[in-house]
Design a protein around this nucleic acid. Sequence first.
DNA 1: TTAGGTGTTTTGAC
DNA 2: TGTCAAAACACCTA
Length: 276
Amino acid sequence: MPELPEVEIYRLYLESSSLHQPVEDIEVEDPKLLTTPFATLQEALKGRWFTGTERVGKNLFVFTDGPDHPEQPLILHMHFGMTGDLEYYHSSLDRPKYARIVFHFRNGFNLGFICPRKFERIGLIDDIPTYLKRKKIGKDGLIISLSELDSQIRRKKAFIKPVLMDQSTVAGLGNWIVDEVLFQARVHPEKRTENLTDDDIKRLHDAIQLVLTIAIRHEAQYRDFPIHFLIHVREWDNSPYDDVEAHKFCPRCGTRIAKSEVGGRTTYYCPNDQRL
DNA sequence: TTAGGTGTTTTGAC
DNA sequence: TGTCAAAACACCTA
């Protein structure tokens, strides 16, 4: 799932593959995927090229430049929903499945925006701060300070899990990362924010840094994450473990991992290590 | 008013 | 073939 670490990997991928190549044409299978009218997008980007990127939480921003109106900053925004991905390819024979939006570059290469579930979005924005304010997107998970996280959490009264998934609290955490953060910090997903101690929040802040840093270091390949991570209890398609039962127990204490629903999301936690 | 909670959207994998 | 998963947003309630 494209949460902060995946989007960071996509950002680096786009930077290493797709900069400084004029866009010849843009192909869009379904206009629902756009937050800007197709004609506007086409008109604005044809002949321009990508110059750099910026990421805030799960949002990827791509800066552009061009020969016609170089003084006008045009920024492309990408959100990868639940199944989004990027693939740079040359031959149409190599076109990836579900590449529903494709940027055809003048050099014959293409950047495919892959979106099997159509939860993904692309569009033009004027400037990043305005966009972040309008969408109520908070500080990025990698740079938020302990005091900023503390004040964000303290102003909300709800279970900690949905509060951490709220992009206005801290940007970039989705369902599995929040489960992992709560597990590493030993905080129950249904603990009310009013009942969190200062030490709980300190451990949550540490855990956010730990989980995001390790996920990026392993290029968001879940199977490569440390064995003491909770993520291995999830039934991934390509789990590295042959014994399906073996990873349904807490890697710290051996207690069977509990599965429940919190805030409408499937939630895994250790009932022994994470108590209310 | 608005924070917090719930439902909807969307499609492929199994 | 039906069920499940997910993020963001519309909508509802107190």
